[in-house]
């Protein structure tokens, strides 16, 4: 992972202080505190309606904050909208483009608005990398290709900050890979990405930190490697002989433990979820005849889903179901 050093005087890429945006009926975004440093890829996770898009649209100055403030590279997102837009590339979650125009016409217009040199050449390069034909009318393009048009519009002026709402939505795996590579390249140049996504695998691949938003509240924001280190692992141990006597589950850091009966060809199988260091377990197994051993870390997706299920269960007053 690349770490970027910046002078302390420079403001963070994105800072939210008590930012809220409440709609009629109380839905929306509740006061949010978050800081995203320059050169960081920050994954913004949450289910539909959690408030991810509202956060991005508020950062773009499309929605007026109900309270608090948000700044992008030191500029207030509501009062200095144009200054923010000059520095930001934005991909909306629901992209609607003029069907009768070609992608090249749309890029040309955006380039004239930006007025910076090299924007059109950059758009051409991005089209080549994303394998997008800019001469075709947008109305004739597939969903994935329309998404590529939106991505080129967001990236073509090499913005300092990228606000991307589901950037790989509708893309084939090859194009998804290219987009993630482009984001990593942007980061290598010191630029910042706020990546809102349902695709946890892609967030896991590129993000340094993630924020999990739920019902308009940021319930977790931490480094991805810390989050992953705290994830439980799935344990499977098959023994050759009879099952050994093991210390208590809690001493080994095991939960959800159960034994699978021996078969003709193999001994009993232990299945459990391991949280924390595996050393106590390995020591306990030292004298046993182990035929098969597998310890697999839960994916971010699994952790995310479990997190949500447990919070839903707590909220509805039900007992948390075991996986």
């Amino acid at each position: 992972m690349t770490t970027h050093q910046f002078p302390a005087a420079l403001p963070p890429a994105i800072e939210l202080h008590g930012l809220s945006k409440l709609f009629r009926g109380g839905a929306g975004l509740h006061p949010l505190e978050l800081q995203i440093e320059r050169g960081e890829i920050f994954g913004f996770l949450g289910p539909n309606g959690a408030g991810k898009t509202t956060t991005l649209r508020t950062l773009m100055g499309f929605l007026r904050p109900t309270s608090g403030s948000a700044r992008v590279l030191g500029h207030d997102v509501w009062h200095e909208r144009e200054a923010v837009h000059a520095l930001v590339g934005y991909l909306p979650g629901e992209l609607t483009l003029p069907a009768a125009e070609t992608a090249a016409q749309v890029f040309g217009e955006a380039a004239r608005q930006r007025g910076a040199a090299g924007v059109v050449a950059n758009a051409k390069m991005l089209c080549e990398r994303l394998e997008l034909d800019p001469t075709r009318k947008i109305g004739t393009l597939s969903k994935g290709n329309k998404q590529k048009v939106g991505l080129v519009l967001a990236l073509m002026h090499a913005p300092e900050v990228l606000l991307l709402d589901e950037p790989t939505d509708g893309l084939d795996p090859l194009a998804q890979d290219t987009v993630l590579t482009l984001l990593q390249e942007a980061q290598a140049e010191g630029r910042t990405v706020l990546l809102s996504s349902h695709m946890l695998a892609e967030v896991e691949r590129v993000a340094q930190r993630v924020g999990i938003v739920r019902a308009g509240r940021l319930v977790r924001a931490e480094r991805l490697d810390h989050l992953i280190a705290g994830l439980p692992s799935h344990l499977t141990v098959t023994f050759r002989g009879p099952a050994p006597t093991l210390p208590s589950e809690s001493a080994l850091g095991l939960t959800d433990l159960y034994w699978q009966a021996p078969t003709v060809s193999q001994g009993p199988t232990l299945r459990a979820t391991l949280t924390g260091e595996p050393n106590p377990l390995l020591r306990a197994l030292a004298g046993a005849e182990v035929a098969y051993f597998r310890l697999e870390r839960a994916s971010l997706e699994e952790a995310f889903l479990n997190d949500y299920r447990s919070q839903n269960a707590v909220q509805s007053g039900q007992e948390e179901p075991h996986a």
Binding site: M60, F62, P92, L97, P98, Q113
Partner: peptide
């Protein structure tokens, strides 16, 4: 209402 205003407004020009 058709969702076509966000892209022109995402540029550096004012409303």
């Amino acid at each position: 209402e058709a969702g076509r205003l966000e892209l022109p407004l995402a540029g550096p020009r004012s409303r």
